[in-house]
């Protein structure tokens, strides 16, 4: 299994250059069964990363470009009257795929956003009174531009909370960027990629991730982190129990990627900024949606040893 994981990471690395940490985070998010939000400036490789993930994991893939005039039906699908059969036939929307790339999710209106987000949470959609299950596994990778950009509808906290992780990609290091310029076009590489993991293997990995041991000492540490976020004055509000669970399951996934059968504090620390960044808000910042500074504060103020 470790071999498999390593090959997956390497394979993705051939397309997304010099971003191993982000690749690992994204994989952690997916094997923990959560949805991923990638937030960065346009052109940083958000779409490429999600494409690559879909291909390498061998999942059926569709992309929804969110715009301000996107309607819920454009996401979920619609029933159309068929003359031949004289009845309404349901035409499933792009959401009926295993991996959805919701591009620039914050450019759509809240109504369309919530159509997606409900599907994310329930893993089923109800259209015209009929409930339809979504395929399994079901992942949503959403990308968004920073909120300061023009023409965005920021996601409310409750909807941000649906994403297990929020990651940023950041500028590539010079060596990777050079390779990007010198080498083959990434899109071409992407199209040649073969799936590394079958869906059964993915399910096995997901199962293994849940089996990773978290000792009492580690849970104590997670609890201290959560507690600190709730009592310290710099936090506008603390982490929810869902946030704590998210932290623990991501740490387990990270430990599995690191070939360990138990979680260590470093695992928690590695995933912590991505897991809690979008769930917390600084007390001094009334509109902001979390910040890296808060995660750093948690990491440096809460000791590993109680």
């Amino acid at each position: 299994m470790q071999d498999l994981i390593k090959r997956t990471i390497d394979q993705i690395g051939t397309v997304v250059l010099g971003k191993e940490h982000q690749i690992r985070l994204a994989l952690t998010c997916l094997i923990s069964g959560g949805h991923l939000l990638i937030e960065d400036l346009p052109g940083m490789g958000k779409t490429t990363l999600s494409h690559t993930l879909a291909r390498v994991l061998g999942l059926s893939f569709n992309r929804i470009q969110f715009t301000s005039d996107l309607l819920p039906a454009d996401i979920l699908g619609i029933s159309i009257y068929e003359k031949s059969s004289s009845s309404f036939t349901f035409h499933p929307g792009p959401i009926f795929n295993q991996l959805i790339l919701a591009d620039e999710i914050n450019r759509a209106t809240p109504k369309s956003q919530s159509a997606l987000l409900e599907a994310m949470e329930e893993r089923q959609v109800t259209i015209e009174g009929e409930t339809r299950a979504l395929p399994s596994p079901f992942f949503v990778i959403a990308t968004q531009n920073p909120n300061s950009q023009a023409g965005t509808f920021p996601l409310p906290e409750s909807q941000l909370d649906r994403f297990l992780m929020r990651i940023g990609l950041g500028y590539p290091d010079p060596a990777s960027e050079r390779m990007l310029m010198v080498g083959e076009e990434r899109r071409a590489v992407l199209t040649r990629l073969q799936p590394v993991i079958t869906q059964t293997q993915l399910a096995e990995i997901q199962h293994a991730s849940k089996q990773v041991v978290a000792s009492d000492a580690l849970i104590d540490y997670v609890q201290r982190l959560v507690h600190y976020s709730r009592v310290a004055s710099e936090f506008a509000y603390g982490l929810s129990p869902r946030g704590a669970l998210a932290l623990l399951s991501c740490a387990k996934g990270w430990a599995l990627l690191d070939d360990r059968s138990h979680v260590i504090p470093e695992d928690v620390q590695a995933v912590l900024p991505s897991v809690i960044g979008h769930r917390l808000r600084e007390a001094a910042d009334f509109v902001g949606q979390g910040s890296g500074a808060l995660a750093q504060r948690l990491l440096t103020r809460v000791d590993v040893i109680g």
Binding site: S215, D216, A217, L218, D220, H262, V263, I264
Partner: peptide, 13 residues
Amino acid sequence: YVRLNYSCAGNNS
């Protein structure tokens, strides 16, 4: 230390 502290569940009791 890591082995003793983190590798097995419920080592507080």
